[in-house]
Design a protein around this nucleic acid. Structure first.
Lengths: 87, 87
DNA sequence: ATAATATTTAGATATTTGTCTAAATATTTA
DNA sequence: TAAATATTTAGACAAATATCTAAATATTAT
């Protein structure tokens, strides 16, 4: 939960999640979508992975990143607590 | 949105939101719930206010803080995009 | 085997963040 | 008006963060 909020607290990482919502992508494809160095994107991907918001699968020399919505569900559930009626 | 995610990226601030979900509280009441100095809590309250997650109303020498769910709705909506079916 | 490609790891640096104490401001009470 | 109470503002500092370049690792192609 803590890691998820940390991961979400960055515009680049949120954009990466939105890209992956459309389709799985390799690290290189993701890098090409930004004007940030490869290593920086790699670091962002690592944080997203730590938060379990994405998963990574190696295929040959490529690594495919995918969105993992499990943690999204947890956050949605956590946020919903604030929607309960005021007593 | 950016400010909201920043505000949520801290356990103390998330706890403050949960306290305010139960009832409005003064700054002092909130301070008493934590083992953090008053100025630090005041700073956290300021960030929550900047993010529009809380509102503050002065009543005499007290300042009452309340939860504001408008931004919560925005975040819920934003998170929901990741729930759409994969094509 | 060597070169090329894809990605990460390491190390450095400037900025941001959470916390503190001391001081300032505002309100109420004696 | 002076003292007490509630809260914030200011300034300092250590820890965390986002970014970079250079180097390392792993895979594929020549």
């Amino acid at each position: 939960m803590n890691l998820a909020f940390k991961a979400l607290n960055d515009a680049t990482r949120r954009e990466i999640l939105q890209l992956l919502q459309e389709r799985d992508m390799t690290a290189g494809e993701i890098v090409d979508k930004f004007r940030i160095s490869g290593p920086s994107i790699s670091h962002h991907l690592d944080l997203l992975k730590q938060a379990k918001l994405v998963t990574a699968v190696k295929e040959g020399q490529f690594i495919y990143y995918s969105l993992n919505t499990t943690v999204v569900d947890e956050i949605l559930k956590w946020m919903m607590q604030f929607k309960s009626k005021k007593k």
